[in-house]
């Protein structure tokens, strides 16, 4: 009696796994159509951005005419950064704003953090817009993660 019930429960478990796998495959198929539509039509429901964004490739190509501000931690900055970038974080902003003023020759200022939506980048961008009398402040699209590597 006991072995029968044990094998019955084993069969039930195997059956549950089998149907779960089939159902999961069906659900994945259901998700495939909107996925293809999202990829093809490049849907985006973003609200208008507070700051204009510059694609990483464009910034990389036009680096000589831009002033970069890197808001990441010091160790991340030291492991790699955009050409001529200044390392400024909200907590070091007051001491570094003078350096930005000295280096800024009216060129566009590009601010970046680790990725998209960096809160630090936004904070520094807001302060710079105010302190540099509204220069053209841009955010690097995708942050440092999107910066082209060789």
């Amino acid at each position: 009696m006991a072995p029968d019930s044990a094998s019955g429960s084993e069969q039930g478990t195997t059956g549950a796994w089998k149907s779960a796998l089939l159902q999961a495959a069906f659900l994945l198929l259901c998700a495939a159509l909107p996925t293809v539509l999202t990829a093809r039509l490049n849907f985006s429901w973003t609200t208008p951005a507070e700051f204009e964004a510059i694609p990483a490739k464009s910034a990389h190509a036009d680096a000589a005419n831009l002033l970069f501000v890197d808001v990441r931690n010091q160790d991340r900055f030291e492991s790699g950064h955009a050409p001529g970038a200044l390392a400024i974080r909200p907590e070091t902003y007051e001491t570094m704003v003078g350096v930005v003023r000295a280096m800024w020759r009216g060129q566009r200022v590009v601010i970046y953090g680790e990725g998209t939506g960096s809160e630090r980048a936004l904070q520094v961008a807001r302060k710079l817009r105010k302190d540099l009398e509204a220069p053209r402040i841009l955010l690097l699209e995708g942050g440092w993660a999107a910066w082209p590597r060789n």
């Binding site: 549950a16 159902q23 495959a25 659900l27 998700a31 909107p34 996925t35 999202t38 990829a39």
Partner: peptide, 24 residues
């Protein structure tokens, strides 16, 4: 592109009796 739709499928599937195990 795929991740949000797979998440939607996993969420809705929980309420469809024939798809519950798959959604889990």
């Amino acid at each position: 592109c795929a991740l949000p739709w797979v998440e939607v499928a996993a969420a809705i599937g929980l309420w469809v009796p024939r798809l519950r195990l798959g959604a889990i």
